[in-house]
Write a protein that binds this DNA or RNA. Sequence first.
DNA 1: AGGGCCTGGGCAAAATATGTCCCGCAATGC
DNA 2: GCATTGCGGGACATATTTTGCCCAGGCCCT
Lengths: 343, 343
Amino acid sequence: MEILSLIELIAPETINLLETRYIILRTIFYNQPIGRRSLSDILGFKERAVRDQVNFLRNQGLLKIDIMGMYITDEGIKTLESLHPVYNHIKGIPELEVKLKKLLKIKEVYILPGNSRDSGMVLRDMGKITSKIIKNTIKNGDIVGITGGSTMAAVAEEFIPDKNKRDVIFIPARGGLGRNVETQANSIAATLAKKLGATYRLLFVPDGLEKEALEYILKNEDIKESLNLIDNMNVLIFGIGRADTMAERRNLPEARVRELIKNGAVAEAFGHYFDIKGNEIWEYKTVGLSLNKFKSLKKVIAVAGGEEKAEAIISISTLNENMILITDESAARKIIEIVDNAT
Amino acid sequence: MEILSLIELIAPETINLLETRYIILRTIFYNQPIGRRSLSDILGFKERAVRDQVNFLRNQGLLKIDIMGMYITDEGIKTLESLHPVYNHIKGIPELEVKLKKLLKIKEVYILPGNSRDSGMVLRDMGKITSKIIKNTIKNGDIVGITGGSTMAAVAEEFIPDKNKRDVIFIPARGGLGRNVETQANSIAATLAKKLGATYRLLFVPDGLEKEALEYILKNEDIKESLNLIDNMNVLIFGIGRADTMAERRNLPEARVRELIKNGAVAEAFGHYFDIKGNEIWEYKTVGLSLNKFKSLKKVIAVAGGEEKAEAIISISTLNENMILITDESAARKIIEIVDNAT
DNA sequence: AGGGCCTGGGCAAAATATGTCCCGCAATGC
DNA sequence: GCATTGCGGGACATATTTTGCCCAGGCCCT
């Protein structure tokens, strides 16, 4: 990589070229088939600039153009993959990762350049990376907890199926969260399990049950089995949310939401609410993973991007030093800004 | 280095930038202080192009400009050094080295980009590289033979003095060749020895002596000692010449020159003349290193550049498979061309 | 059947690169 | 000590490229 620094010195023009061409190639990859005009709209580039670059990339055999628009070629995909680390280097991602890891005092940090909120591509890249990390982390015999949410849905979506099957069990970490089927922990656990050739259990516990109803439901054998697995879970893959958005999304009573915010809740994860120091403020009434169990886990993978989640990430990071965090550049920079201002 | 191939694909403009800026930087390094106009003359670039690039390089802190002209900065020298392998890669030198080594069936080949005949800079670079190789090759106790010639003079000139002294002896490999003091084996041996903190012996045997005079002179103790050292020499560093040019330079009678050429002599080295197959055609009448001794040496470093020496290099390479050759790109390409045409 | 989006071509206007020449200055050679 | 040479930097008309925009013709999807 130090050859890149040399090029930065002796031919800095290259950096721009590399960056624009990388971005164009990536955008085509994620939006193909796409036309010159839509592309320049998405990227905010002038139509002509896109046109020139696209012509160039076509000459290099990295993309094809037909009447429908532009497609990336196999060669282009290979090139795009080789370019990821180069682009990261240009954006200073490696340094950012080291810094954030130290700041949050957690095991590992992976950062995707860009902002996953603005760009669905970044979210999808986060999902891709996470899926690689999951594959490297999971060993035979593991019981893997999963939560819901749109980020986790992206992970499941981008997960690349693996030939060699694993002898693991996927299980939702908590009961009844979410309405949208694709973003439910149940369906995410199922998708991941299928793509890995693993097994999974579901956990259906309706939201907001009263004590008696809950007790009644817990007599169900399936649910008992699932809860037993959760107690023995040794890997957790979960999304981190903002306390306020998650409270709203769950339709908590307004009074409750106000109280949470008054008490400084900024983060939500697996049904628990925390302030920025990592103190638990409240726990959503359902079954599943407890805070103590979470704190004792050795393999913990958190996924969360977008600067609005900065505080939430800071909060959750204090809970378990074994955590592996996958996030994006904008969240990372915001976190650093917040922590730097606090000191 | 494979990142360079990636850049060649995705931002080929870089290659030109790299090349022109490298060449400009190098030319300034070797000719400082130099002005914009002389620089463009040397390089054959338009004045304006040079001017733009020079401005750029100055902004990057790689060169300074004052009233006398342009100078390279320390930063510039460091950068230049880092750029050598990059430039080599661009020029395809590594591949060329591998190919030539196989073709000539010798131990090692080092190639400098360019043509040492056109550009004194290339010759000086050859000298630099050779001096590094010499340092790596020579071990304590070695007796190192040296020949004369302008190439060997460049080696001595560019040799970078070394702190840790070596316990070695430098000795001219042959008697009486050359007139110009700087290009005489005696003075080259002395220069190298001094720069390495080593010792040296001289060998003064006038050119073209008759048998009796020679026998008489050989009774001299100094000469006896030197010849004894030559017999025990275990390292040779030598230049390769064209048979015709060397014959002329030694003022051989015209009949002799014609005969040599008629017999197919193309190469001269340490006073011996060879045809392209490596058959000895004639030996110049003086004392010193014999052909058999040469063939038995384990450490042999040959230096020769310029396409006109291609045949000579081919010839000499057949004599000793332990040979390490330092040459330039134009000679290398010419050699490959000749050998390819011959098959 | 029609609206939308696609490519490739064309073209004038704007921006940049290019090729030259000049000037004042300091070092160098005679 | 004086003329000459070679230097950097400024200037500028001209050539070349880049830019921004629009159009025609065609396929796709609704």
